[in-house]
């Protein structure tokens, strides 16, 4: 692992920035692709969009067998995250398509986790690179709603 890897995607990892294809509206996350995965435009014309801080669980799995240093059970989910609205803390393209985000869940009781559940983005440490913590977005069921 090296610094450049995390530097390249830090806007996506730390600020939930996505990339909307101006040809078809598909939102790429976290990759800034040259080709649109849906309409095939090449090179595609992408615009950066701010994603909201809450999304909806589309599907999930729970990992029980992981290296000792990772807490288990560890749920991971596919979350559809809408683009941020005009009234949000950061302006975005409200009404655009959501981004499909793969994310770890934290501080979430498995009994409360289900498809369709609203989750919120949480800025957390995902792993270490040596001594250095790598922080990025995870998700959790909103605190106080569990």
């Amino acid at each position: 692992m090296s610094g450049p890897r995390y530097h390249r995607t830090r806007r996506q990892d730390q600020r939930l920035v996505g990339f909307e294809c101006q040809g078809c509206g598909w939102v790429s996350f976290p990759d800034e692709r040259r080709v649109c995965k849906r309409c095939g435009d090449a090179p595609a014309d992408y615009e950066e969009v701010q994603l909201a801080d809450r999304g909806e669980v589309m599907t999930f799995v729970v990992q029980h067998y992981l290296p000792d240093d990772i807490e288990t059970p560890q749920p991971v989910a596919i979350v559809d995250v809408p683009q941020a609205g005009e009234d949000g803390p950061q302006t975005g393209n409200e009404g655009g398509e959501p981004a499909r985000v793969y994310g770890l869940l934290t501080e979430t009781d498995l009994e409360d986790l289900e498809v369709g559940r609203e989750v919120e983005a949480r800025f957390r440490e995902v792993f270490d690179e040596g001594d250095r913590p790598i922080n990025a977005i995870k998700f959790s069921i909103p605190r106080g709603e569990q």
């Binding site: 290296p67 240093d69 792993f127 270490d128 690179e129 001594d131």
Partner: peptide, 11 residues
């Protein structure tokens, strides 16, 4: 305390 992930040794 700090901890190790995925077997990466913290120096």
């Amino acid at each position: 305390e700090r901890f190790d992930y995925e077997g990466v040794t913290v120096a």
